[in-house]
Design a binder for these strands. Structure first.
Length: 574
DNA sequence: GCCGTTTTCGGCCCGACTGTTTTCAGTCG
């Protein structure tokens, strides 16, 4: 069974956890974590790379030693260092380290002094008041651990989808704005980087003489618990168990603080290193030469001081953006206003809520030039998938409505199912009468990787195949992607002249950012579609654009920045 | 364990907050 990059990253992170509990050199531990992160973010499969005798040491954070260890993991499926560590350190300790407030040092102490090696034992020790007597611990710490354990018990700590985070952020930002003296307020962090899910919200605030801002914040009616509260930084847990941090800085530090709190952590570390080389110190208050602040008011000013152009938040993941910036080769990222239409939408012909005409008028109102109605095909019976006669009826209706629309066209589309054997769910002669065929998988998710990949590539052989919809089928936090070899699929799409969808629905966001970048590098155009089932879903486009930007896509890489006419040319098969 | 315009040793991002201890270690982001 081939080992995935995320498996290798998990093994390295697990190793780092155990090394940390063992009290190893912190820099050695960091090296394992850095390498794990590098691998996690790689678009290419490490297993494949090794089988082709590729050199892992060309990636940052992987040296000779770790390259050898990674090879061991890939080739043997096990890792001797980790196995040895496990012999000395009970398995349960890595769960303890996941308890917020417990780090490696405290876990090691709890284990050493009280022989506690699992969550259940920890709970018992907390209940009987044994923790408070340990040196360096106390009543308060014990209580915090107790609360954390209760929280872990009732809730799986999942990351929150960006759309949900937005719904939480909006009223909170509105509330914060009512504080006296408040000036600027920005939701920074991974939310600003438009990551598909976020762990918490980082809200950055500037204000004049605003001594009461933190009181105002912690008084918010949705606050369940105040985790910490200081003059410049406070953290709370909302009733939904969602964490929000607020940081206050002065106007003169706003740009530096924005860079700092937007992250990512890895990006920040990388730019600080550049700063150090230039004898600067970068922190959230500015860029400093000695004790003198030489930049900090705006983000551009901060980047400029270390000889970099402004880097868009979505790129700040230390995935090559700094090198690109140094070489003046940053992409000019696609924007919502570049989009000229939506190619994946549903109508009341199947499981959509609105009529074709309502969908079209809503799209026109958004400033689009076209919309494709692409309802389900017959195999998806639960959604009332269209039979051939239904498709013919829909074609006629679209022609009729198109006659009434000025400066806008409804494209005839279909979301046609890819059957288990790779055939499409409707006859070719009918599919040929449509403008756009979006092809997707809605059943048999659990085929082997090889079979699933072959199924899709076989479907692409059909010249009617235009776009592969939601290519991995994942639903964030709900359903894993089906097992496919994405690199093979992207290459097949390139070879056969097919396009890939980036489904903008916030539950899907599929392709993910890494796959978007892969498509761009291989030279396959991406279509950002909303999969709208009602008119207001058309607004999901903004989430798709965020993901596309994270995947380094420019307008040129996104097919639906083109006119309908240009699109038809793109769909022409070789 | 990684890395190099301070190149093969000696560094490794930086600061806030908490709780415990009394000047700071641990944790987090």
């Amino acid at each position: 069974m081939p080992i995935h990059n995320s498996d290798i990253a998990d093994i390295l992170n697990h190793t780092a956890d155990l090394l940390e509990i063992q009290g190893e050199n912190p820099f050695r531990i960091r090296a394992y974590r850095n390498a794990a992160r590098t691998i996690q973010n790689l678009s290419k499969s490490v297993a494949e790379l090794i089988s082709e005798n590729g050199d892992l040491t060309k990636y940052s954070g992987i040296g000779k030693d770790l390259a050898g260890k990674i090879e061991e993991i890939v080739k043997s499926g096990s890792f001797r260092l980790l196995d040895d560590l496990k012999k000395n350190i009970p398995e349960g300790l890595s769960q303890l380290i996941d308890v917020s407030g417990l780090g490696a040092k405290r876990v090691a102490k709890i284990y050493k002094e009280l022989k506690i090696s699992g969550l259940d034992q920890l709970k018992k020790a907390v209940d009987s008041g044994k923790i408070r007597d340990l040196e360096g611990f106390g009543k308060k710490t014990e209580q915090n651990i107790k609360e954390e354990l209760e929280r872990l018990g009732k809730e799986q700590t999942k990351r929150t989808k960006i759309a949900t985070a937005g719904q939480i952020a909006a009223p909170l930002v509105k509330y914060l704005k009512r504080a006296k003296g408040i000036k600027d307020i920005t939701v920074a962090g991974s939310y600003r980087r438009r990551k598909e899910t976020v762990r918490d919200l980082d809200i950055l605030v500037t204000c004049n003489r605003c001594s009461n801002i933190m009181d105002h914040f912690t008084d918010y009616e949705d606050v369940q618990k105040v985790i910490s509260k200081g003059k410049t930084r406070s953290s709370v847990l909302l009733r939904s168990d969602f964490q929000v941090d607020v940081r206050v800085v002065q106007q003169v530090s706003y740009g530096a603080a924005m860079v700092y709190f937007t992250g990512s952590k890895e990006h920040n570390i990388a730019i600080r290193k550049i700063g150090i080389k230039k004898k600067y110190k970068l922190n959230e208050y500015g860029v400093f030469k000695g004790k003198k602040r030489v930049a900090g008011k705006t983000e551009s000013e901060v980047y400029k001081k270390i000889n970099l152009p402004y880097i868009e938040p979505e790129l700040r993941e230390n995935r090559g953006e700094i090198k690109a910036a140094q070489n003046n080769r940053l992409p000019k990222l696609v924007e919502r206003d570049d989009i000229k239409g939506d190619l994946h939408t549903h109508s009341s012909y199947t499981d959509g809520r609105n009529t074709i005409e309502q969908m079209a008028r809503a799209a026109k109102k958004m400033g689009y030039q076209y919309i494709a109605i692409s309802d389900h095909s017959q195999h998806v019976t639960v959604a009332g998938g269209l039979k051939p006669k239904d498709v013919r009826k829909q074609i006629k209706e679209i022609d009729k409505i198109n006659d009434t629309l000025k400066g806008f066209i409804i494209l005839k589309g279909i979301e046609v199912d890819i059957l288990e054997d790779g055939r499409l769910d409707l006859p070719d002669d009918l599919l040929k009468q449509l403008h756009v065929r979006i092809c997707s998988i809605h059943y048999k998710f659990n085929l082997s990787k090889q079979k699933q990949t072959e199924r899709i590539i076989r479907a692409m052989d059909n010249p009617c195949f235009n776009i592969l919809a939601h290519p991995t089928g994942r639903l964030i936090n709900e359903r894993y992607p089906y097992d496919v070899d994405m690199e093979k699929i992207v290459k097949a799409a390139k070879e056969k002249g097919c396009l890939l969808e980036l489904n903008a629905h916030p539950d899907r966001l599929d392709l993910n950012d890494i796959h978007c970048k892969m498509a761009k590098e291989i030279g396959v155009k991406v279509v950002v579609n909303t999969d709208a089932h009602q008119t207001d879903h058309l607004n999901y486009m903004r989430f798709g654009i965020g993901q596309a930007r994270r995947g380094w896509l420019e307008a040129e890489d996104v097919a639906n920045t083109k006119s309908a006419k240009q699109l038809m040319k793109l769909f022409k098969r070789k």
